[in-house]
Every structure is written in structure tokens, then in C-alpha cells.
Simulated scan of single mutants.
Amino acid sequence: MNYYQSLGYLVLGSRLKRLSELFLSEINKAYRLQGIAFETTWFPVFQLLDKHKVLTIQEIAEQMEVSQPGASQLIAGLKQKGLVCSQAHAADARKQQITLSEQGKTLLMRVKPVWEAIRIAMEDMAGTDGHHLLENLTRLEDEFKSKGLVNNIMENLNSKNIISHEENI
């Protein structure tokens, strides 16, 4: 057991961040090895537009669970690269409808086999208990959304007999 593993939940965020960085780095390598200029941060937008064809920036932000400015910034970058197009919404000109451009659709067709290979590789690596990992991550995400970690920490500090460092002296 390494140092991080020995600390359990106290370093869960650090372990998840390290794992996420490793995961995204490996996926970026796979894209590069296939000669595909695709960034992992684009995946949710491409997947959503593949599924829905047309979405507003607000709908993309809601689906990705990010702020509207964050989604706008991502869309602006994709627009600059010529991968998405936008046009004013027919009913509300303040809203922009986003679609994949022809270049974006071509790129989508190239990355879809990589996505399937990623899914298969991750299922293999996660093993037979992999579905439990995803279920537990979903449960943890739901707990963070509904109650929040800080509320839980404060509750524990107030209701449990946790002795502060100063009281131990």
C-alpha cells in the first residue's frame, strides 16, 4: 500500500485528481497515435451534439453540469477551430443554437471508434466489479449535490466527540 492509499478518504480528492489526469493523458495519447487532433475536453459537447444534433449553449451547460460562461467558452473555442456552428434560435434570438460543422461531423466519425475502444478498455481494466465503481461514483456525486461535504463535516464536528488538536495539548 502506498502513502496515498494508506490515508484513505483524507486524500480521496487528490487520488481522484491524479487518476483523472492519468486517464485523460492516456486518452490524449490514444487520439495522437490515431493521428486525430481531438481534445478530451471536447468529448461532452461532441457526444451531446451527436445525440441531439442541435442544442443551445444553456442546454449544453445544463447537460454537462457546468456554468453557462464555461460552456460558452468551450463552444467559442470549438467555433474558432471550425468544429461547431451557431445560429440564432428561431423563437429567441438571444439564444444560440449549436450544431457540429461539416468538419466537426468528419472529426466525430473519426473519434467514435476511439470512444468505443476506450469503453471496452475501461471495462476490461475495471474488471467484473467495474459497474460497482460507476454506481458508487454516481452515489458519491449525488451525495455531494444533495448534502455537500462541508455540511457533513460540520455536522460531524458538532455532533461527534471529535477532539480538536488544542484540546489534546
Rank of each mutant, 00 (worst) to 15 (best):
K112I: 15
Q87N: 11
T138F: 03
E141P: 00
N136A: 08
N158R: 15
R94D: 01
A91E: 07
T138K: 05
Q34C: 13
S14D: 13
Q63H: 13
L107W: 03
A30T: 03
T106Q: 04
T106L: 04
A30F: 09
V150C: 06
M1P: 07
L100A: 05
Y3W: 14
Q58V: 15
Q58T: 15
A88E: 13
T56M: 02
R94F: 05
L78R: 02
Q103M: 09
A71T: 08
E123D: 10
N152S: 12
A76M: 12
E135W: 11
A121I: 04
L157T: 03
Y4A: 15
Q5D: 11
Q80C: 07
E166R: 15
I57S: 08
K95V: 05
S164V: 06
D129L: 09
L140R: 05
K51W: 01
I163P: 01
E155D: 09
F43V: 11
A30I: 12
E21H: 12
L100Q: 03
S86I: 07
E135P: 04
M1T: 08
I120V: 14
F43G: 02
A88C: 10
L24I: 09
L12H: 06
Q97M: 15
E167N: 14
F144M: 04
L55E: 02
F46D: 01
R110Y: 00
E135N: 11
L157H: 05
E65P: 00
R139A: 09
S101W: 00
G148F: 01
H89V: 00
N156S: 13
I27P: 04
E59L: 07
A30M: 13
E59V: 04
I118H: 12
G70W: 00
F23K: 08
M122Q: 14
P69N: 00
H165L: 14
I120L: 14
N136Y: 12
P44I: 04
W115D: 03
A61S: 13
T41A: 09
H52K: 15
L83K: 02
G127V: 08
N151M: 02
A76F: 11
L7S: 06
A37M: 10
V114A: 06
K17G: 09
L78S: 02
A117P: 01
S86G: 11
Q73T: 10
A90N: 00
K53C: 06
E155V: 00
P44R: 04
K105F: 01
R32Q: 10
E167S: 13
L157Y: 06
G77C: 01
L48P: 00
A121D: 13
A117S: 08
K105V: 06
A90C: 01
L12F: 12
D129F: 01
E65D: 13
Y3K: 14
A61Q: 07
Q103C: 04
I60A: 04
V150D: 11
H131F: 03
A71F: 02
E123F: 10
G130Y: 06
G70C: 02
I75S: 03
I169M: 11
Q103R: 14
N151C: 00
A117H: 08
G35P: 10
A37G: 02
N2I: 09
M122A: 13
E135G: 12
E123L: 15
E116Y: 07
